[in-house]
Amino acid sequence: MECPFCAHANIEGADECQQCGQPLGDMHLSAPRTFVERGLLTDRVSELNPRKLFAVGHRTTVQQVLQLLVEKRIGCVTVVDDDQKTIGIFSERDCVVRLGPTFCDHLSRPISEFMTTDPQTLPADAKVAFALQRMDVGGYRHIPLVASNGAVTEIVSVRDILQYLTDRMPMSPS
């Protein structure tokens, strides 16, 4: 039986998690009523069909990034430093809010001046519920996934989540 809080594998029937001490009974979480609810606690974000992430160097110009977004038909890129460490994210929203009507003056500036620093990420083996929580509470549209070796190569978007939920929800014909 896997702990929903720390993913520690406990013996079946344990009252509390051996690792984090959280109760594993049904005292705090009602038993999942539906297929979707069970899925949220057991499925991992890798089941959302995350897409390949495009990363750009921090010295890439704004113009090059904009062209990449248009050519690849993607909504955001991550920005990496010289050691390939992710330091930021640049999304459609950043274009509109940070560049704005004066974008012509910024086209040759490095992307690091306009990116959102320190983006919210999730481990690639996190549960789907976490992705939902991050997007709904934080209002994010994209969440980069960090693999166990620290590499950031995939990204989930709000549309992947909508697709996941609607695929699993009972939908009466309209």
């Binding site: 809080f5 519920a129 976490f130 709904d136 509470v137």
Partner: peptide, 15 residues
Amino acid sequence: FPHYVYNLPPAPHHT
């Protein structure tokens, strides 16, 4: 299904 989304620890695998 608010229980499953809002009642989560701050990070996955949070110990």
